[in-house]
Design a protein around this nucleic acid. Structure first.
Lengths: 251, 251
DNA sequence: AGAATTATTATGTCAGACATATTTTCTCTT
DNA sequence: AAGAGAAAATATGTCTGACATAATAATTCT
């Protein structure tokens, strides 16, 4: 169990509990240990535990009833589009399934958002996106420096739509990019390859060409998904090799 | 200020504070009153206030720093796709802008989700959707009875995609339908008119016709948006009339 | 005037107590 | 024996008061 060394903050406790739920250790409907039990397990006061649980209640992960205890809510009620929840999922089980799902949603949302951006965005919006593009360009082959402006690029498009719900979708994009970043270690050159595709998106936006912007973003999504899929299969292969080595060593 | 009569639960306090933020009384960056101040204002202990604030932290609305106080986070960080946050927004400021934005997102997501559902859903998934459809049919002209299966219909399609992020989008759909329901009081027959459009969606799904399902859902979205827009303008007109009457009476 | 030090203060955490709402158990009746 | 109803048990909900901690504000010294 995730008992840690000495002191945990409510945030880290929330993350640990969330992971238990996300990884299926505590399934839907499971009544989790009582607060006093959790308090002693994490070596904090009951107040801190309650704070951690409140955080998770806010994300729809759990609910409490007096005397009955705190239970894991139905999967449907989990707010998977929450930024922290996405990050926790990402670090707990970065499966191929997760990657597939997140890219599927991006493909649905981002091209349309891009079209709206081109049609309705202001020049300041476009300038912000261009600034992000230049940041990516300036980063060269530096994966770390490339990541931040990449996010700002995509987020800038969402912001330009002026739609609060599309803007909130930025959290999902952020999680996806973080995943890509983690995977790109096996292929450092991959991020840079997306630069011309970003350029194409930017050009269509400046031209206020909604259809063109949609298509350009669509192509960028194609490339991104392709990169992720191949990176994951490489990763998988590597993991399998390590597994083989470990197995050989063990017996 | 939202000071209430005697006892408030952390949830209702969270809602009240959230409304202050959503309506712009406390803008981005605003440092809200200190916990002791809030405690006396809501007539509860500091512990309850902290619980309420934790809930809002979980939704990305606020963040706290020792000594510096609790501040309202940037709009971009608000998780507007959270169910409670949507409901609070809906009850606090059900503006035309809100309606427009939520329908814009539905138009992007639901037709695609519907196509995926048709292509990939299981027969059990389809049966669940059909059950919802029959519930709508059975409700006849009863607006109240119509609402729940209507939500189940749309949610069923999202669930059938098997995509956790699309499923989480159900919260947004739920909020939109609640809004429609509230507005339909000025035109009680409106919901029922959507029934054949739902039927068309269902038929295309059973036929596993992805393109047809997408188009059918698209048409349903058209109708829904149309209903909302006309209902809102009726509402607006009514409000304006009441305003005129009140103004006349006042002077 | 500017840097370093000290005081202040709001959130963070703790401890222990009591309130409240369910669930569980027990008891009594039919 | 079965079922209704009363009593006990218990986990969350709430309150109080205290201290810890970190960021800010005020002060002192160079």
């Amino acid at each position: 169990m995730a008992k840690s060394s000495s002191k945990d903050s409510p945030q880290s406790i929330a993350r640990d509990v969330a992971r238990m739920i996300l990884t299926g250790v505590w399934r839907e409907g499971t009544i989790l240990p009582r607060e006093i039990e959790l308090a002693s397990r994490f070596d904090v006061s009951r107040a801190s535990i309650r704070e951690a649980l409140s955080l998770l209640k806010g994300k729809g992960l759990i609910a409490s009833k007096q005397k009955a205890g705190t239970h894991v809510r139905a999967r449907f009620d989990w707010n998977m589009l929450d930024e922290e929840l996405l990050n926790w999922t990402l670090s707990a089980l970065p499966t191929q399934e997760f990657a597939k799902q997140i890219m599927e949603v991006r493909r649905i949302v981002e091209p349309e958002a891009c079209a709206i951006c081109a049609a309705r965005g202001t020049d300041e919006d476009f300038a912000r996106i261009e600034r992000a593009y230049r940041g990516m360009d300036a980063a060269g082959m530096d994966r770390v420096a490339y990541a931040e402006p990449d996010l700002q690029f995509h987020r800038g498009i969402l912001i330009a739509t002026g739609n609060d719900f599309l803007i909130a979708f930025g959290a999902t994009v952020a999680a996806a990019l973080r995943m890509s970043f983690n995977l790109s270690s096996t292929n450092p050159g991959a991020p840079r390859k997306s630069l011309p595709y970003h350029r194409a998106v930017l050009d269509e936006i400046w031209a206020r060409n909604a259809d063109g912007a949609r298509q350009a973003m669509h192509k960028l999504m194609d490339l991104t998904e392709q990169n992720i899929v191949s990176a994951m299969s490489r990763q998988k292969k590597k993991d399998a090799e390590n597994e083989t080595i470990r197995t050989k060593r063990t017996r």
